[in-house]
Simulated scan of single mutants.
Amino acid sequence: MNTIPRRIVTGIKDGKSAIIEDQQAENAVEHLPGLIISDIWNTQKMPASLELEMSIPNTGFPQTPKNGTYFRYVSIPPDRNLGVEFKAGEPHPMMHQTQTLDYIIILSGELYLIMEEGETLLKPGDIVIQRGTNHAWSNRSNEPCIQLAVLIDAEH
Score class of each variant (00 low, 15 high):
residue 1 M to D: 09
residue 2 N to A: 10
residue 2 N to M: 08
residue 2 N to C: 06
residue 6 R to L: 03
residue 9 V to K: 14
residue 9 V to G: 02
residue 11 G to L: 09
residue 12 I to W: 03
residue 13 K to T: 10
residue 14 D to N: 15
residue 19 I to P: 05
residue 22 D to W: 03
residue 22 D to T: 05
residue 24 Q to G: 12
residue 24 Q to H: 14
residue 24 Q to M: 10
residue 25 A to C: 12
residue 26 E to D: 15
residue 26 E to F: 01
residue 27 N to V: 05
residue 28 A to T: 03
residue 28 A to E: 07
residue 31 H to D: 10
residue 31 H to K: 12
residue 33 P to F: 01
residue 34 G to H: 04
residue 35 L to M: 12
residue 36 I to T: 05
residue 37 I to S: 04
residue 40 I to M: 09
residue 40 I to A: 02
residue 42 N to R: 02
residue 45 K to E: 15
residue 46 M to G: 09
residue 46 M to N: 14
residue 47 P to A: 11
residue 49 S to V: 00
residue 50 L to C: 13
residue 51 E to G: 13
residue 51 E to C: 10
residue 51 E to I: 07
residue 52 L to S: 10
residue 52 L to Q: 07
residue 52 L to M: 08
residue 53 E to C: 07
residue 54 M to K: 15
residue 54 M to S: 15
residue 55 S to D: 15
residue 56 I to Q: 05
residue 57 P to R: 01
residue 59 T to M: 08
residue 59 T to G: 12
residue 59 T to H: 05
residue 60 G to V: 01
residue 62 P to F: 01
residue 66 K to W: 06
residue 66 K to T: 12
residue 67 N to H: 15
residue 69 T to N: 06
residue 69 T to V: 05
residue 70 Y to V: 04
residue 71 F to Y: 14
residue 72 R to Q: 09
residue 72 R to I: 07
residue 73 Y to H: 14
residue 75 S to I: 01
residue 75 S to Q: 13
residue 76 I to Y: 14
residue 77 P to G: 02
residue 78 P to F: 00
residue 78 P to K: 00
residue 79 D to A: 04
residue 80 R to C: 10
residue 81 N to F: 06
residue 82 L to E: 02
residue 83 G to N: 08
residue 84 V to A: 08
residue 86 F to C: 13
residue 87 K to C: 06
residue 89 G to L: 11
residue 91 P to T: 07
residue 91 P to V: 11
residue 92 H to C: 04
residue 93 P to C: 09
residue 95 M to T: 02
residue 95 M to S: 02
residue 97 Q to N: 07
residue 97 Q to T: 12
residue 97 Q to E: 15
residue 99 Q to D: 15
residue 99 Q to I: 06
residue 100 T to C: 00
residue 100 T to Y: 01
residue 101 L to R: 05
residue 101 L to E: 09
residue 102 D to Q: 09
residue 102 D to P: 04
residue 102 D to W: 08
residue 103 Y to W: 04
residue 103 Y to F: 13
residue 103 Y to N: 04
residue 103 Y to Q: 08
residue 104 I to Y: 11
residue 105 I to E: 06
residue 106 I to Y: 05
residue 109 G to I: 06
residue 110 E to F: 10
residue 113 L to T: 03
residue 113 L to G: 02
residue 114 I to F: 03
residue 115 M to A: 15
residue 115 M to P: 11
residue 117 E to L: 07
residue 121 L to T: 12
residue 122 L to Y: 11
residue 123 K to M: 06
residue 125 G to E: 14
residue 126 D to K: 09
residue 126 D to C: 13
residue 127 I to H: 04
residue 131 R to F: 08
residue 131 R to Q: 05
residue 132 G to S: 06
residue 132 G to V: 00
residue 132 G to Y: 01
residue 133 T to Y: 10
residue 133 T to C: 07
residue 135 H to F: 04
residue 136 A to S: 12
residue 137 W to A: 01
residue 137 W to R: 07
residue 138 S to G: 14
residue 140 R to Q: 15
residue 142 N to Q: 08
residue 142 N to P: 03
residue 144 P to Y: 13
residue 145 C to Q: 04
residue 146 I to E: 13
residue 147 Q to E: 09
residue 147 Q to A: 13
residue 148 L to P: 04
residue 149 A to S: 15
residue 150 V to Y: 01
residue 153 D to E: 11
residue 153 D to I: 02
residue 154 A to W: 03
residue 154 A to H: 03
residue 155 E to Q: 14
residue 155 E to Y: 03
